[in-house]
């Protein structure tokens, strides 16, 4: 068998790398705005809680545990938390992925790879000036759409989600 020509550690490394690559890319997919827009405008029965954040944004990082707790609390209901990072793509491997792993984030994390923000900010909400954190609640099938451009307080997300009477 040719396979045995290589030391065992070599194959272990290959296996490890093969395992790592999809694991890393699955953690934080890099998407364009159109992909995000499609993802949150599905005609299904899911409420999307779309939080715009960045590793460099202090108040965003502070409120992430609140979004994570919503992810856990509504796990059995049709509520999906999407954490959309506005970090630069060049910081994906060095900052975003290590951050997501260190914080053990369980919600879906994406990196929105858009540079010309003026082309898409209004499509999330015309009332959004562009500051983060910002959060959009959207459920197309029931015309639910609420946007907030501020930090959320403990319990606030739950109150809002419950107010939609899912």
């Amino acid at each position: 068998m040719t396979i045995t020509n290589k030391p065992k550690s070599f194959w272990l490394t290959v296996l490890f790398l093969a395992w790592m690559i999809p694991a890393m890319s699955q953690h934080v997919p890099v998407i364009q705005f159109d992909q995000l827009n499609k993802r949150i405008h599905q005609n299904n029965d899911t409420l999307y809680v779309v939080n715009f954040w960045a590793t460099w944004c202090g108040p965003c990082v502070t409120e992430l545990p609140l979004l994570e707790s919503v992810h856990k609390k509504f796990a059995n209901q049709k509520v999906k938390v999407l954490l959309v990072s506005l970090d630069f793509k060049r910081d994906l491997q060095t900052k975003v992925i290590p951050f997501v792993q260190k914080r053990k984030l369980r919600s879906s994390v994406y990196l929105l790879n858009e540079t010309d923000h003026n082309t898409w900010i209004d499509k999330i909400s015309p009332e959004w000036s562009g500051s983060i954190p910002a959060t959009l609640f959207i459920k197309t099938s029931r015309n639910v759409r609420k946007f907030m451009e501020k930090e959320v307080k403990a319990g606030e997300l739950e109150t809002i989600i419950q107010s939609f009477h899912l």
């Binding site: 944004c57 108040p59 923000h117 900010i121 959004w128 562009g130 500051s131 983060i132 930090e151």
Partner: peptide, 10 residues
Amino acid sequence: SAKAIGCSIK
């Protein structure tokens, strides 16, 4: 007018 992502004023 044109928008961009920035840090919220503290």
